[in-house]
Write a protein that binds this DNA or RNA. Structure first.
Length: 545
RNA sequence: GGGCGAUUAGCUCAGUUGGAUAGAGCGUUAGCCUCCGAAGCUAAAGGCCGCGCGUUCGAAUCGCGUAUCGCCCA
């Protein structure tokens, strides 16, 4: 719709043949004015171009209007307004054409052709040391919705979960289970500080005891800890997978950190960087010279103890991603990782890739509130609300929608009381209700005549609806390029409002059968877009509620 | 001390990359079901878009400064 107008304006500018040809010819925008009295669409072309063309804005606007060509009869009215805007009112013919086009395209509306580009989304990637909490849920909702959207606009998308199944946190996990095991066997040693205290640790200890017996405790401590870490990690990972499946998040790959070490990838990337002269030794440690690539200081890759740092394995991991043929990487991370971004980009550059091929999406924390009080969320103390609990309380759809309505870079307040008591008032139902209402109308619909005349949709509420519907493809495109799935949630809320308003103003099934038929087509289109939009958010779109 | 993000209605938050009179949900107030689903609609009240300076035809949006909050680093 906007493209159509832009083309016409550009053509008018060409016809005007004004010298000099301006370089900012395409700098103007076509937008929807807030005020309905300003028509369907407005352009600032005259305002933007006035200076370089040496004309007064209003004068230029008049010239543009005079030179518009519109053989199809799509423009009803074009007039100069305010400081030099041109307001357009589009004709019924245009709206009929746009709606027909949408219905003809059907379930593929807004879907772009494959671009032959592989893009990887890594998200959640929580350590398998405890259950997922709400913060992970937010990352999961955003990552998954973004994956759906990117796929929709033509990328070959792969979702990946990186499992940190080795290192310090895993050892602490093993030690935590060991401590509980010893307790079960009568030890009175105090539980070690800074270890995982959640009740699930005790459950895991009981499970080990039941399956393997107390002989585990006879092993040398290191062996026991390693065994228990693996055992517990595997179990926890299973429950993480279950939670994500419940949340309707599916991964193509679960990538194990261990496999990087097993296949010697860390050593390979170290020698690669060494060859490129990016490494140096100092104080018995091996350093990576990341500063020239925009990091604020250099980083250790191999400690004096010989241990590889977390950063070293992470470089190997991202190297591996590129080697698997992904041209673009998106990482959804908690906001506490933002200091990590420059060094990741630095590593990307040093490895010979464009740093802009990796996008890090930082998601701010979720603050749980109960009875007006913040709820502590430490995995260590065991006082946390798991994703599973929240899903049980408010349901998958509501949780996803709440996560996806807010921009990722603002902390989200999640009020559990509100979520619990106001389930039915949740905004997600406002959108879903549109679908249910339409299905109900369609059930009562009379049989359609052979030919439907969409020109009968002459009410302003109808053109408003069509206008918003036809914005869908462009909106998805924007949400994809900006990696902002929440734009879609906002879009759907507006669509819902427009529909509910229309519904209250006009009956769909009216005695005039031709008009009824046209209106049924319109609400079918609304149904379709609501369905597509909710699907892209991973929210269900029920026929009945 | 340095960095990143935030600051918009009583509360929770949008604002489609600079457009005309600032948006929604919840809450408050007053209305609307003999009529396609009232999980809805209509209306009212509620705003110095943290503050200051700048950029320009035009700023919630961009720049600089500043305050407050959250997080990260030393």
């Amino acid at each position: 719709m906007k493209k159509m107008l832009k083309k016409k304006i550009n053509l008018a500018l060409t016809n005007l043949n004004l010298a000099p040809p301006t370089p900012d010819r395409n700098n103007f925008t076509v937008e929807e004015p807030r005020d309905r009295e300003h028509g369907h669409l407005a352009t600032n072309a005259a305002l933007v171009l006035a200076k370089s063309l040496g004309r007064k804005p209003r004068e230029l606007a008049e010239l543009i209007i005079k030179n518009l060509t519109d053989p199809e009869g799509y423009i009803e009215k074009a007039e100069v307004a305010g400081p030099g805007f041109i307001n357009f009112t589009l004709s019924l013919k245009w709206w009929a054409w746009a709606l027909a086009d949408l219905l003809r395209t059907g379930p593929a509306y807004g879907r772009a052709a494959a671009r032959g580009q592989k893009i990887m989304l890594e998200f959640v990637s929580a350590n398998p040391t405890g259950p997922l909490h709400v913060g992970h849920g937010r990352g999961a909702a955003i990552g998954d919705a973004l994956a759906r959207i990117l796929n929709w606009v033509g990328y070959e998308v792969s979702r990946e979960y990186y499992i940190n199944d080795t290192g310090r946190q895993m050892r602490i996990l093993g030690e935590s289970v060991l401590a509980r095991l010893q307790e079960l066997q009568g030890s009175t040693e105090p539980f070690p500080e800074d270890h995982y205290r959640g009740t699930y640790i005790m459950e895991l200890a009981q499970k080990v005891l039941a399956e393997k017996g107390p002989e585990i405790l006879d092993l040398p401590k290191d062996e026991a800890v390693t065994y228990l870490a693996d055992f517990a990690g595997d179990q926890i990972l299973v429950s993480i997978k279950n939670d994500l499946a419940t949340f309707k998040v599916e991964y193509q790959t679960w990538f194990s950190e261990k496999s990087l070490h097993r296949e010697g990838q860390v050593e390979k990337v170290l020698s690669f960087l060494k060859e490129k002269n990016h490494l140096y030794e100092q104080d018995d440690a091996l350093w990576f010279n990341t500063e020239p690539f925009g990091d604020d200081k250099n980083r250790v890759l191999v400690k004096s103890s010989g241990e590889r740092t977390y950063f070293a394995t992470d470089i190997a991991y991202h190297w591996n991603k590129f080697q698997r043929g992904f041209s673009e990487l998106v990482n959804v991370l908690g906001a506490d990782h933002h200091g990590y971004v420059p060094r990741l980009k630095a590593a990307t550059t040093a490895l010979g890739n464009n740093p802009s091929s990796i996008t890090v999406l930082l998601v701010q924390f979720v603050n749980l509130v109960r009875d007006g009080q913040p709820v502590a969320m430490s995995t260590r103390t065991g006082e946390f609300i798991t994703l599973k609990e929240v899903l049980n309380e408010v349901g998958v759809d509501a949780a996803r929608f709440i996560f996806l309505t807010r921009s990722p870079d603002t902390p989200l307040e999640f009020d559990l009381n509100l979520a619990r008591t106001q389930t039915r008032d949740n905004p997600v139902y406002y959108v879903q209700y549109v679908g249910a209402r339409i299905e109900s109308i369609l059930k009562n619909a009379p049989p359609a005549p052979v030919e439907t005349n969409l020109l009968l949709l002459a009410q302003p509420e109808e053109s408003n609806l069509i206008k918003h519907l036809t914005n869908f493809p462009e909106l998805i495109e924007i949400a994809a390029t900006r990696r902002e799935p929440h734009l879609l949630a906002t879009y759907l809320t507006v669509l819902a409002r427009l529909f509910h308003h229309y519904y209250s103003q006009h009956h769909v099934i009216v005695p005039n059968l031709a008009l009824a038929a046209a209106r049924l087509e319109l609400i079918r289109a609304v149904r379709l877009v609501v369905h597509l939009g909710l699907n892209l958010l991973g929210v269900s779109s029920p026929d009945q509620m």
